[in-house]
Write a protein that binds this DNA or RNA. Structure first.
Lengths: 244, 244
DNA sequence: CGTGGTATTGATCCCGATCAATCAGGGTGG
DNA sequence: CCACCCTGATTGATCGGGATCAATACCACG
């Protein structure tokens, strides 16, 4: 794991301060958090945490994309979460991590020592409140993904994934400007996320291209040509995704 | 929905007081909770909440089994949670529920008015702490289930389900006494939980019987004959389930 | 150029879905 | 008591979507 520790950035200039676990905290509370925080950065494909490893830190993703996965005895793997900026990693009350965490791109984390962080949750209501929200939001997202994994066809899975990527990238840029969208994952990683094989992912993307729902400028960059037909292909009902 | 409101039971004699959302609260804090709590009971097959419905209450399951599910436009459904005594229902910060909640047996809920409960989370650290734990535990469980839905074979899914039912029923009886175990769900509901059809569930159970891994005394009651072979059939590695 | 990692496309296979028939148990009413 | 039906479970026959195995294309490196 090639990990480097950065000089601490001030919370005031943090790019995720509005959505991260600390977003409700006032200046005094932030000061408490700053005393137990460290930035760590990882290169693409670094393993950030191994399943079963002792957990000294919990963290927020500041920049980059990481994946949360689990594997069966014989090597089959399933991704169970895609960690984007402001997402939270770890379980303050657990001494060991249950999942593998891997950097899908270069990643910067804001890490808090686990044990002091656990105590802060008890003492700082603003932290506990936000933590509850984050955990419950993640839980709803995980449950939506269970519907996808258990019941959707390959075509619906891909359409749902593309729609999700599109939505999250639109949220990020406040100006709503239309630029090319980027797939944050390789075909094999998308397959892993969707419970498919990479061949099936490739075939389904080809179908969406041939139906002029989207087009690729290269392997990783694409544009949506027909948002309505994309949504129809997800299998969700009209307002299902928007409420989520 | 045939729902009846019971006279309030005292928290002191509550069967789930050690694991429910209130388990960390002291007497004063319980008094606050009691002022916003009501018991409601439902008969088997009652719909407790409809997806999209306005959410006036959050609740703990006191007795019985409920299911949490979601369905796609064309009627396919996927169960995304099995709610057993002490499990929590609802999202204090959301005005609407995302899922269908159905009573799988006769069910008693301990309901808290949502808005006052949300405020209590901010004021009562013991409540927020426990809420964080419950949400994160549920999240881990949901992620384990994603592995099952995405990657396990039908045989592994059934074995995992049986193992889970067995474990949870052993936890309940502290004496560890060996009596017949009971399937909390119909074949069709098991199928819905596992992302299978009821025919496949039936066939896989027949296989486990023919291999003398378990035996049925009637359609709902069974005994494990070979716990080790059952676990081997789950596809999990040796200690995966025990840590969880 | 060649080489290694990634993606596409093709051919075939198999697990689980689907369609369908039968069975088992348990009320209910004659 | 039996005939009837109703719901849930089992078992059988067939089908098809996606996995698997395999070949080829692409492209950024040296």
């Amino acid at each position: 794991m090639q990990q480097s520790i950065l000089k601490n950035m001030a919370c005031a200039s943090c790019p995720i301060k509005h959505r991260a676990v600390c977003s409700r905290c006032d200046a005094d509370e932030l000061a408490l958090l700053e005393s137990i925080k460290t930035y760590k950065s990882f290169s693409a494909n670094d393993q950030i945490l191994w399943r079963g490893e002792e957990l000294h830190y919990v963290a927020s993703v500041v920049e980059g994309v990481a994946t949360l996965g689990k594997s069966l005895e014989d090597g089959r793997t399933q991704m169970v979460g895609l960690l984007l900026p402001s997402d939270f990693i770890g379980h303050p009350g657990r001494t060991h991590i249950e999942f593998d965490v891997v950097a899908a791109s270069d990643v910067t984390l804001c890490c808090f020592e686990r044990e002091p962080f656990r105590k802060l949750i008890n003492d700082v209501p603003h932290l506990a409140q936000r933590m509850v929200e984050i955990a419950l939001d993640e839980l709803d997202a995980a449950r939506d993904w269970m519907v996808l994994l258990g019941r959707k066809t390959a075509g619906e899975k891909i359409a749902t994934f593309i729609e999700m990527v599109t939505r999250r990238q639109h949220l990020d840029r406040a100006d709503g400007q239309q630029t090319d969208l980027v797939l944050p994952l390789l075909r094999s990683e998308i397959a892993n996320y969707l419970g498919l094989t990479l061949e099936t992912v490739s075939r389904q993307l080809t179908i969406l291209k041939s139906e002029s729902v989207l087009e690729f400028v290269d392997k990783r960059h694409f544009r949506i040509l027909d948002m309505a037909r994309l949504h129809d292909a997800t299998g969700d009902d009209a307002d299902g995704g928007i409420l989520a």
